[in-house]
Design a protein around this nucleic acid. Sequence first.
DNA 1: ATAATGTCTTTTATCGTGAAAAAACAGTTT
DNA 2: AAACTGTTTTTTCACGATAAAAGACATTAT
Lengths: 335, 335
Amino acid sequence: MSLVFRKAISLFRVMGTSYCASNRPPQATACNGSGMSKSNNVYKDAYNRCLRLLDETRSLPSEPELGTLLGVSRTTVRTILARMEETGLIAWNKRAKTVLREPRPDDFFPEEETDTLAEIIERSFMRRLLAGGAEAGMQINELELAREIGVGTTSVREFLIRFSRFGLIEKRRNSHWVLKGFTRAFALELTEIREMFELRSAAAFAALPQDSAVWADLDRLEDEHRQLASEIAKRFNEFSELDERLHRLIHRASHNRFIVDFYDVIAMIFHYHYQWNKAQERERNEVAIGEHLVYIEALKSRDLGKVDAACRKHLKSARQTLLTSIPESRSPQKS
Amino acid sequence: MSLVFRKAISLFRVMGTSYCASNRPPQATACNGSGMSKSNNVYKDAYNRCLRLLDETRSLPSEPELGTLLGVSRTTVRTILARMEETGLIAWNKRAKTVLREPRPDDFFPEEETDTLAEIIERSFMRRLLAGGAEAGMQINELELAREIGVGTTSVREFLIRFSRFGLIEKRRNSHWVLKGFTRAFALELTEIREMFELRSAAAFAALPQDSAVWADLDRLEDEHRQLASEIAKRFNEFSELDERLHRLIHRASHNRFIVDFYDVIAMIFHYHYQWNKAQERERNEVAIGEHLVYIEALKSRDLGKVDAACRKHLKSARQTLLTSIPESRSPQKS
DNA sequence: ATAATGTCTTTTATCGTGAAAAAACAGTTT
DNA sequence: AAACTGTTTTTTCACGATAAAAGACATTAT
């Protein structure tokens, strides 16, 4: 029973997709097993973002300001500045941080090194889950997962705990995790809640006072939808980002943390779903944009009947899209 | 800002309620800081439960059978048997496990040693939260919490991650946790979802076929409610357990994992709420039992209108009870 | 042959440790 | 004096290690 999932994992390793394997010189990777405590991805990511900032100005702002701009502490800012001085990008003397040259492509840290451990683990895990061969009822082995991904067990455990709220896995008391599977039942349960929550949020949205800031946000989103619709042929893959922004805006109107937080589950599922199911992507997104525009019009009209109808219609087709992408599961899980 | 919560923690330590402090000889506790990896609470708890089994029989069943009975592995069963032989409770030779004497009170391991680390941490944390002085916006310090409770940081981190789904705390990206507070807003958001979910579950329940096993469960619960009602004066504190069982039974009828799982949030809140707010406990529970009986009747009638009315009525008074027990917060949290 | 016991291996739970990153403190500069 | 820079302390994050507990395998008894 657990064998199948184990097989999938082994297969995965052979494929060379593991974080610490292949397509990089082995001795050059950070994954050398020896007492590595914590990767400096926060620094590397902020450094890359700071490089992009360099293009625009002749000199950088103060350290605290840079900190808030990049979303990191001043300690990290100083590490970045030190490196930029070293590589001749800036001249740094106390408050003076003058830009000396434009950043080159090789100034950037490679993308893979800027990811959080949590992201790395999530990606690996989801790839296994969606790659097929992962059936409901299968056991999940923390140690094996950690070894395969090339990270410590603690990180994997924490990931699984966080991930458990998505309802796809479940823990057996002082024992292993059990995979519940990305099944039809899961999709139906997920969409049931989604519909309940979004219908309520949309009604709350429509009832918001005219001077609320959300109406401006909605107008902006409407514009972006129209632009995307006009260039749908080349930009159809930009829809998923727009989709999330619109739905999150609506959910926020509920003023209920449980509703807002639940959108994380939906976002996660749709994120991987978009990556995975590319069939008729353009057509699907085109339809969805149309539905969104109707939905937005309905919200702006503040007519609860219209809002309800537009919301129902869009959610129904979203559910349909999700359902058709799920292969029929063979083995029904036993309690 | 974070000072207040820190003060609360220090106070807590002075009170001597910390797991590793006072009312036990310091040198005898398991908390001696040196390389202790894992407590054997699973064994101790199963041992105690096994002792109670001893009263009823002249000899114990096979090892695998005992394992399923106690919910532990055979490894643990054998450790238990070994100890029971050592203390002269049984004679153990292969399949023969004859009971030699009745267990005495001092055969049992002390209660505190049978708790999970997660339970210990949760209790300490909730005590702080409800003890007052813990206001919204306060920082939560993993290291400090771990030190005060006398456990490792890893366990505290895992607890906080699990606990975060209750919506009372929130993580700042690569930084500390923030307390959102057990406020009026929290209670309202919680009960809003609860009402949505339970109304739907109750309707699903009433629509269940006559031959479903739930009807027998419901009859049993009705009996227990009547018994409790007749002895309410002395047994009023047993209501909370019954309450949870009834609501869980109803929620399960939704066949939706998100609805079922959400009851964990409600159960947690009500568990601590019951412990904390003892004002008019008898009266409140008496009223609730009455409402439950009406609710049960409505479900049995399978009349959706009646079900809806009974459910609404009970949930409304449950919300009221919760709300009155929350002290009005002074400082509104900033975004 | 089935189901138990006896033994060995693997996995989970928890800790201490150390580097990365944040935060606090102290001293400067405008 | 307000805002910045320089320095030090704390806290978070992630790891390897180890005992408890689970699980697998081998052996024996009914």
